[in-house]
């Protein structure tokens, strides 16, 4: 039905603890994990939807016990092996097997041509990766239209596949706030069809339509949802 990342609305979590500073990283290895993940992404072997799905495919036990950047590392290890970038034997090699090659022994000339070089970092981060694409799918809805989300928050093509419809908003009536244009469909992009695009909408849901015990009758939750997640509501 679902995976452990889909936690919106879940009961049982404790208080949110505000930050005491504005620091971007609170441990050196957090920063390193983020940087390695971005550098590996620049190899071009996967897209953002593939990498999100890799984290989502962590076992519920690992997903729950892992800290944030451990989830990133878990997803990255799975992607590196799945895409043939490294082997399981290499991952298992351990520091002893790897000490032969220290970073200090590596001449930059040995860098793979696909590798992100230091002088390219600023340009790559500044360029980003826009997700809007041309699409033959005409928009079916306009701002103000009443819509209903898919009854099950599941990928319709791949069992256990990636989707961006959270479980809490499945089968719920909402209204279109705005049309964002046509964007890559994550449900396809995570599974080998990277450029299939369709209209994307911001859809507002009344808290009272989402929750049995809404906090306040005026409150709403807005989600960005692709056209194939939606149908016209009567």
């Amino acid at each position: 039905m679902t995976r452990p990342h889909d936690m919106g609305g879940r009961f049982g979590d404790g208080p949110v603890v505000p930050a005491t500073d504005d620091a971007a990283f609170h441990a050196d290895w957090h920063a390193r994990a983020l940087a390695i993940t971005l550098a590996c992404g620049a190899l071009g072997k996967w897209n953002i939807d593939t990498s999100r799905h890799a984290r989502e495919c962590l076992s519920p036990q690992d997903y729950t016990r892992f800290s944030y950047y451990e989830k990133w590392l878990g997803g990255l290890a799975a992607l590196l092996v799945a895409k043939g970038v490294v082997t399981r034997a290499e991952l298992a090699g351990g520091p002893a097997a790897l000490s032969y090659f220290g970073p200090s022994d590596l001449d930059p000339i040995d860098l793979d041509p696909r590798a992100l070089r230091a002088d390219a970092v600023a340009g790559v981060l500044a360029k980003g990766g826009a997700s809007d694409r041309p699409s033959d799918t005409a928009p079916l809805f306009r701002a103000g239209d009443a819509v209903q989300t898919r009854r099950k928050a599941e990928n319709t093509s791949v069992a256990g596949g990636h989707t961006r419809l959270p479980r809490y908003a499945a089968g719920t009536r909402g209204r279109v706030l705005r049309h964002h244009g046509t964007h890559v469909l994550p449900d396809a992009a995570a599974h080998g069809t990277p450029d299939q695009a369709e209209p994307l909408y911001a859809v507002a849901f009344k808290a009272s339509d989402l929750w049995a015990h809404p906090e306040h009758p005026l409150d709403e939750v807005v989600l960005d949802l692709w056209q194939s997640y939606l149908q016209a509501a009567p």
């Binding site: 390695i36 550098a39 590996c40 190899l43 970038v85 490294v86 290499e90 991952l91 090699g93 520091p95 790897l98 032969y100 090659f101 220290g102 970073p103 590596l106 930059p108 040995d110 860098l111 793979d112 696909r114 590798a115 992100l116 070089r117 230091a118």
Partner: peptide, 10 residues
């Protein structure tokens, strides 16, 4: 260390 040794990360 592994990725640097393989020349995939600078």
């Amino acid at each position: 260390t592994l990725l640097v040794a393989k020349g995939l990360v600078d």
